[in-house]
Nucleic acid binder design. Sequence first.
RNA 1: CGGGGUGUAGCGUAGCCCGGUUAUCGCGCCACGUUUGGGACGUGGAGGCCGCAGGUUCGAAUCCUGCCACCCCGACCA
Length: 491
Amino acid sequence: MSKKLTKRGEDYSKWYNELVVKADLAENSGVRGMMVIKPYGYAIWEKMQAELDRMFKETGHENAYFPLLIPKSYFNKEASHDDGFAKECAVVTHYRLKTSEDGKEIIVDENAKLEEELIIRPTSETIIWDSFRKWIQSYRDLPLLINQWSNVVRWEMRTRLFLRTAEFLWQEGHTAHETKNEALEEALKMQGVYADFAENFMAMPVIKGEKTENERFAGALSTYTIEALMQDGKALQAGTSHFLGQNFAKAFDVKYTTNEGKQEFVWATSWGVSTRLMGALVMTHSDDFGLVLPPKLAPIQLVIVPIYKSDEQLEAINEKVEKMMVELKAKGVSVKYDKRTTHKPGWKFAEYELKGVPLRIAIGPRDLENNTIELARRDILSKEIVSQENIAEKVKTLLEKIQDNLFNKALDFRNNLITEVDNFEEFKEVLKDKGGFISAHWDGTSETEDQIKNLTKATIRCIPLDTKDEEGICVFTGNKSSRRVLFAKAY
RNA sequence: CGGGGUGUAGCGUAGCCCGGUUAUCGCGCCACGUUUGGGACGUGGAGGCCGCAGGUUCGAAUCCUGCCACCCCGACCA
């Protein structure tokens, strides 16, 4: 079995690529930049989806589905949106293939050229707002709170499994509101939902903040973000929520009648998270032995491996384990009993470690005699012999402990990598030697941000929401600044 | 799209400069046997249009030309 992983310290990027493939999460496909999400990886995504979907519905949203293809003309109705995405759109130009003259290959039928080209959605604002126009007449139709689970295509130059793929899965929320304030509140509320999900389910601490103009979504008036920090000290934008003002309402002519009989444009938001979260999950917790999954998102929370010499022993173990399984399942633990005879225990141990299963029970002849089991934790790689009494309760408690431990560990790591810096020399040093977030004063101009980016590759990840006013001078220009922002190199 | 590199079995590779029997080795796969508390061992076996298309030659994985794909470094990005 050549499943030896590259160590994180040797080459973080290589470690990540190998881990995603070896843990059976995803692989590259025959289509440039597009991945195959394998069953184990998809199972994790499904858990994320289920939880997020529940949270969206709890906050009043409904799911709907809009077309994959968008008429090109819709696209340039909102100018900045068009600018932002035009460079990375896949375009459908024909609707039929035919056999070539020599009968050897299938070619595009030039007679089947579309009147108007169709864009494969890079995001769905335009096609959704075309529908919203028909759905919204009166203030009584508002707010309109819609979410869509879908795939989108963005023709990226350089791709990496989960982190940046030419096609990815995501959800996109699109809402319309009567007032500016209500829309702003919605955008912030959804940022909160994302932060809650990241921290309480992914066990990934995030910083809530607002994007600067440079980093803002194409077509948005403000973009709220949750920013996470990966183990190599680079930041990852994990989710965004946009306040779109009336831009799309005006572009698609979406007006409503107020209770005073006046015509007004609606106010909008959109927000999304994608399969990129899978990459974030991997890079937040995993180690040199493989994936480490937080129990709340692990498809298998506990695996049981039998150890035996004879068929009789295996049968005795089976009997014991079947009883345990009933107890465990009753407590809601997702448990797998791997009694395959085709692999040895040592092989299974290594395999489930690689796949990040939070807890493992090994049970063999010795345990049958002593009424014990061996219980192993993935997060800290510990093993202990415990009594079989109350096993479900113990497992349940441990799973919660692991979930907390992963979050706290990631939080400590993140907090240690936020450095306050007051001059540009120090800025460059910290960025080079330590990495992570740099908290520094900035004069608020795009020019300064651009120059810093060109010199250091660091960008402003966000203006943290909880930032306090503090007089200072810009780390680059020395101009006045009233608060610190967070810089980092980002994925 | 610029600069560099690589294509040989499912995966990783040797051979290529300097053309010459049946294309090397490891992992994985299949069968049988022995094994099973941290990735077992033995014996046997299957699997290749050497990226594609041309050319040079008695003879091409090897030399030449063109094309394609992928990887790395830049510009672009959730």
